[in-house]
Design a protein around this nucleic acid. Structure first.
Lengths: 206, 206
DNA sequence: CCAGAATGTGAGCTACCGCTCGCTTTCTGT
DNA sequence: ACAGAAAGCGAGCGGTAGCTCACATTCTGG
């Protein structure tokens, strides 16, 4: 009588139709999350907002957490892509100031990927199991900066470059966080980025 | 037949016994929040963890939100107190560096009020109606810094002091946030505070 | 064209949620 | 000592949450 514990393997969508459904569901998730907050957002509401049956939702996402998790994952991977691209485009020859500004600008660019969603995720979504993607973003940034600093070690006044990298990254992060939460238009202000760059350069440069 | 809409005025606890009950409930709220996260934390669980009946809980807190809200409010007002005290103790005669260091140290001190709880609130609690207390903390900090900067305007190289104050505050905030979320012991490291101070002073000073 | 796989549906189950209320126990002032 | 106020109790109500499953519909390859 004991029933086998129902493997419940969610299918990866193969047909275009299914891909669209998944997209629609994720978009609706973002909307409902923004409207109702995490704990008032129910999977039924999401399905309804997506114009999709609740069964379809559970065909692709095994739980509410998985659903939100997928949204986060997708968003963070897009941000990471922007950061990585900009990092790869770093010219090797410029001054420390130029390069610093470019790295900071890259971080700002990454935060320009759907800042509204980013804000909702920060404000409404309690830390969930798989928030690893956020850590990945932070670690990647730190790695990038550390590499950059050790390349220009001779031009810098800091001895403990790891510490300097961390402090610099955290300081910039403080500003991007504020932008996302309170003042998204600041993400586009070149002057603001200049100001932040100036602070970091003065901190680092000999 | 229509019943008057039940005023449901929660009594303020007057007896010592009741005060203790309220304390116990708030402490239990923090524990359950840490253990289960916001949406899995139920008022029933909180009551059970507090060793108090669910009825008693609702005698003092009219809703789950109010409960969590009270916890936040209390925590933030304690942090604010620490900040304010330290701000009031600012010596008028010192160097910019000394004063800056003191303000930053004050912010760190404020974050040393129960950083574990602070982390839980940041990570687990989605933004709730009355999160005003957090804004109050930020605004107070900014006001303090702005006042400080305009007092020492002649010794600084910035022309736009409001902007400088904001950037400086956000940068420091980035570091405290990291400490609270990932590395609480850093809140006690004088060297780390020195490093951050150095960054800010170099940014501000002529 | 059609068989079977992929996709989509939604009524409805269980479980637990936030919360109330009639009651008992403890405290306080006189 | 005792009356009334304050504090504490917990079974249980109405509701909704997350999620399943038996079924209908659409797509795809041969």
């Amino acid at each position: 009588m004991a029933r086998a514990p129902r493997t419940t393997v969610r299918k990866a969508p193969t047909q275009a139709r299914a891909q669209e459904t998944v997209e629609t569901i994720l978009a609706a998730t973002a909307r409902v999350l923004a409207r109702d907050g995490y704990d008032r957002a129910s999977t039924n509401k999401v399905a309804e907002a997506a114009g999709v049956s609740i069964g379809s939702l559970y065909q692709y996402f095994p739980s509410k957490e998985a659903l939100v998790s997928a949204l986060i994952e997708r968003h963070m991977s897009r941000m990471l892509q922007v950061l990585t691209d900009a990092g790869a485009a770093l010219p090797l020859g410029g001054t420390v100031r130029q390069a610093t500004r470019q790295i900071i600008a890259a971080s700002y660019a990454a935060h320009r990927v759907n800042p509204k969603l980013h804000r909702v995720l920060l404000e409404q979504v309690p830390r969930i199991g798989t928030m690893g993607s956020i850590d990945t973003f932070e670690e990647r940034t730190l790695t990038l900066v550390e590499a950059f600093l050790s390349m220009h070690a001779s031009e810098l006044r800091r001895s403990n470059l790891k510490l300097a990298a961390k402090v610099a990254v955290l300081a910039v992060r403080g500003t991007t966080l504020y932008c996302v939460l309170r003042s998204p238009e600041l993400l586009y202000e070149e002057e603001f980025i200049d100001e932040v760059t100036d602070m970091i350069v003065r901190y680092l440069e000999a």
